[in-house]
Each structure stands twice: as structure tokens, then as C-alpha cells.
Amino acid sequence: MIDVSDVTVRFGGVTPLDGMSVRFEQGICGLIGPNGAGKTTFFNVLSGFVRPVAGTITAFGEDLLKMVHFRRARWGVRRTFQTEQAIEELSIYENVAMIHEHSKMKGGSRREDVLGAIEFVKLEGDPYAKVRTLGAGQRRLVEVARAVVGRPRLVLLDEPAAGLPDEETGHLREVIRGIPEHMGAQVILVDHDMSLVSAVCEMTAVLDFGRLLASGPTAEVLRDERVIRAYLGTEEVA
């Protein structure tokens, strides 16, 4: 469980997060909102790249903000980025092992964990193939494997389905859905693909202008009029 209380982030005159408070229960939680709502900034606060001027974040009973960025990753906060981060000149195995060797959260031996994660995302083919030989969808799976290897506590996925064709999104959806059960981690998913969010997220929080607009069971939140107005803008269009 992630408890976010009154988190405010300021960059000069801009306030990307303005007193955000939300509780992410277990399982897979969605985080949606229009562009510039503060979703990625919130992820950056969780990973430690951005220090909030006020507020607290408690993750599984620990004060997350006290930890230095790279220690949070070792403690079990994993994430993917909007830009691709799989390293081309290394093999799939090395890409995933790299996360494992700096993590304190290990399941079994390195080989077991790494091959387990590659297997989990259903990445077919030779695990020792270089990432540069893979297509975009497969690289995305490598990034997800990096995020789930070992025993992560919290997995942050920042628009994992962006730019993928439908069938690969379908595959990714099944992989994401399996993370809590098979990898034992809580997931926060940021994505603009509402069908993906409603298919995998039990609860969803909506950000708008750095403030929490709504949160609750995904179906209810997506029906909420304020959400539709702010995010989808259908009222104005109609």
C-alpha cells in the first residue's frame, strides 16, 4: 500500500503537483490525467528524481522520501520510462541481470530470477540475443522484465503501451495483469489507453493540474462526470 499525503512539487513558478493526496491499495492501480497533469512528475517523486517541497509518502510502512534515489530502486521501487531504456549493446539477459545485481530484493539465484522474468513477460527466442536485434514490442517487454525481475515491491509503468500495435498491447496487458500474482509487486500504471487501464486496473486515480480529481474503482472513476470533462473533454466537444 502506498500512502501519498499532501505532496507538492514546485519548479520555479510552476506547480506540477499541488497537494496531491491518494492511497494506492494493493494490486494494479491506474493513474490517468490529461497531458501535463503531473503523472510523470509523481513517478519522479516516487523514484527520487524530484524532491517535493511538502508532503509525505509511505510505502509499505516505510518513509519513501527519506531514501536516496538509487537506494529506492534497491529497496524495490522499479520503473519504466516513456523513452526506451533497454540497452542495445547488451543482451536481453544482461539487461535484466543488471537490475538484479543492484537489487536487494532477490527471489532466487541470479540465473533463476533473470530467466524467470524473461519467461514471465513471454519473450520468445534466445535470451542471450542482443537487444539491438529486437523489435519495438520486444524491447518494451525487456523493459517490463527489468522492472519485475527478482522480488520488486512497487512497479511503476509509464505509458508502457504507447505506440504499440493492438496485438502487442494485448500481450502486454496479460503480462501486466500477472505482475501482482506472479511477482508479488504492486503496480501503478500510467497510460492514455483507456481500454488497457480499465482492463487491468482495479482502482484508478485521476490527476488534473497536479491535484487529485477522483479515485476509486476504475469503472466508477471512468464514469465520473468531472473526469470525463477534465480528461476526455467530451462535454466541450459535444
Binding site: F49, A73, F81, Q85, I87, I99, H102, R146
Partner: peptide, 11 residues
């Protein structure tokens, strides 16, 4: 590749 991604990998 990216310093922030390295930090997010626990490096």
C-alpha cells in the same frame, strides 16, 4: 544510455 534510468535501476 541515461543517468536517470541507471539510478532507477539501483546503480
Amino acid at each position: 544510455q541515461s543517468e536517470s534510468a541507471a539510478l532507477a535501476a539501483g546503480i
